[in-house]
């Protein structure tokens, strides 16, 4: 047994029993009254960093190829380059921390609808089918911010086709969306969302499995005071 094999064996043992891991995806939108705003997307795997670090040392795990650090950085750079070319998008930045396994992308938009097709296009470029149809709109006249979200039924059936051990990867994974505004919020339509004390921010938390299974809908219509 050479050193590399020994190492692999060790990390295989570390990975027992499953790859169940905690990670979170955070979507923040700071809306200004004039309709412009900023977006910060964060994926945080630091709670599972031991496992991620172990996985990163393997070529593939449970039949899936593990991307290298270089590959991840390259993909991120491609996403940034794509964003920079997109209409109404500026100030694009990205960070990646391979000690704590946290990556972010942030940018500024002229209108919130500018971001509607971005996620889907980025995913499409990676040959990943979008799991939902999602769109944002902001009506300056009525001061209404809306997020429309529809879980794609195929996503649920595809997910259910996965082996239990693969599904377990998503156990404990969380999705958080935070929308911040300059004016106070007077009404929200989604009962699962929370309004901050200052009434200027709306937060919605959900487990990723509930999102995929369509048990939770993150659609929301937020009315700001006029």
């Amino acid at each position: 047994m050479n050193v590399k094999q020994c190492y692999k064996l060790l990390f295989f043992i570390l990975l027992i029993p499953t790859l169940s891991s905690c990670f979170e995806i955070i979507e923040e939108i700071n809306m200004r009254n004039n309709g412009t705003g900023d977006v910060v997307l964060t994926i945080n795997l630091s709670q599972s960093k031991t496992k991620v670090a172990s996985v990163m040392l393997l070529d593939s795990v449970q039949g899936y190829k593990v991307p290298s650090k270089q590959k991840i950085q390259q993909e991120l750079a491609e996403a940034v380059a794509y964003l920079k070319k997109s209409e109404g998008i500026s100030n694009v930045k990205s960070t990646s921390d391979f000690t704590n396994y946290i990556a972010t992308i942030s940018f500024t938009f002229k209108e919130v609808s500018n971001i509607n097709n971005i996620t889907r296009n980025i995913l499409a470029r990676q040959k990943i089918k979008a799991t939902n149809t999602s769109s944002y709109s902001y009506n300056k006249a009525t001061k209404t911010f809306a997020r429309r979200y529809q879980a794609v039924t195929t996503a649920k059936s595809e997910f259910n086709k996965l082996k239990n051990q693969d599904k377990a990867v998503f156990n404990g994974a969380m999705y958080t969306s935070i929308y911040r505004f300059e004016s106070p919020v007077t009404n929200v339509t989604n009962p699962a969302s929370n309004l901050s004390k200052t009434k200027k921010a709306v937060m919605l938390k959900s487990s990723i499995t509930n999102l995929i299974n369509g048990k939770i809908n993150v659609s929301n219509q937020i009315q700001l005071s006029k």
Partner: peptide
């Protein structure tokens, strides 16, 4: 094991915090 998490204030502004959790690992 330490990890990075986020906490939110009244305005849901994000602050990064370091938390610890227990992790079980084989001693080889």
């Amino acid at each position: 094991v330490t990890y990075t998490a986020y906490e939110y204030d009244e305005d849901y502004n994000q602050t990064e915090v370091t938390k610890t959790k227990k992790e079980t690992m084989p001693d080889f």
